[in-house]
Amino acid sequence: MARFNETNLATAHEIIARYPRPKSALIPLLHLAQEQDGYVTDEAMRQIADLVGVTPAEVIGTGSFYEMFRFEPTGRYLINICGTMSCALLGASDLLHAAERTLGIHAGGTTADGMFTLHQAECQAACTEAPCLQVNYRYRFRMTPDGVEQLIDDLRAGRLDDEIPPHGTLARVRQHIPADRGVGAVDPDAVDGPPAWIPVTVEGAGS
């Protein structure tokens, strides 16, 4: 693996076609690669570079800017424990310690069996439900150290498989623009008039 499989390659082309400039698809394609392989491989970045017409250096330049892309093998479950203000005020560090203790790794590490990667994360936009965490970007609110232990246990036993897909998969539903409904992406430089519903005269006269 590493290069896109046939289905994902088709998806990649579908994604690219939505944007007026192919480079815009860079981040969505990195997500797609991460969904396929659990992390972003060197080979995937080269292929993405070809697909969107940039150099591999530009792909890693963009990719490495963003927190969510992982460039090395990552646990099936990425546990992100929020450590920002409201969670910090309400005991986030206890959650982190509980997770470290239970998993036997430090934040930033991956368990030897490849099941878990643990991270201290920044604000997850659930501050009223502090302290919170995410497993593969699925929330767990108002967590306690005991709750963390239980969660890890459930994950390990596969009891949450229905709710939490493996690392790399975000939305399990993708947007598909039906061919007969989509307007299509147009080269920005090829457009010189207003869209159909805007009368030229009104626009020209100023409003």
């Binding site: 150099t55 591999p56 250096a57 890693i60 330049g61 800017f65």
Partner: peptide
């Protein structure tokens, strides 16, 4: 027109780098 070096990483960890082996 040879974007073979690029910023990688972010913030205080930003560096200029090539792609590995390129």
């Amino acid at each position: 027109g040879d974007a073979l070096i690029h910023f990688v990483e972010r913030g205080n960890a930003t560096q200029v780098m090539t792609y590995p082996d390129e």
